[in-house]
């Protein structure tokens, strides 16, 4: 494990996860398709997970990796709920463009 970090360096992990996070954030802001937005959110989440794992190794502390397991499990549940909502929306309006969800405003 130490070898990998020695070979690549912690700073590169930080750059990568920052890049992934920004890709995700822009994806959320730019795209209008709800599923793509979902994917972007997952990218942001995984960027954070990656950073957590990297620092966990760097500090020789397993707690960070355990925390990532929890976060992935919660993310899986959240995706299940989110996708179920999207299916329900699709059944109603036959598309999943978020601009159409303006109708939900009272």
């Amino acid at each position: 494990m130490e070898n990998i970090l020695e070979q690549i360096g912690i700073d590169n992990y930080i750059y990568l996860s920052t890049l992934l996070f920004c890709v995700g954030a822009f994806g959320v802001l730019y795209r209008r398709n709800a599923i793509v937005m979902f994917m972007s959110i997952e990218i942001m989440l995984n960027a954070v997970n990656l950073l957590l794992v990297a620092f966990s190794t760097y500090h020789q502390d397993a707690a960070g990796q355990v925390f990532v397991f929890f976060s992935m499990a919660v993310a899986a549940a959240e995706v299940a709920v989110g996708l179920a909502i999207l299916v329900a929306v699709y059944r109603n309006i036959k598309n999943i463009d978020i601009d159409n969800l303006k109708k939900l405003k009272g």
């Binding site: 978020i98 601009d99 969800l101 303006k102 109708k103 939900l104 405003k105």
Partner: peptide, 9 residues
């Protein structure tokens, strides 16, 4: 509060 999710985000 205009209902646009994109704007909220």
């Amino acid at each position: 509060q205009n209902g646009s999710i994109g704007f909220y985000l």
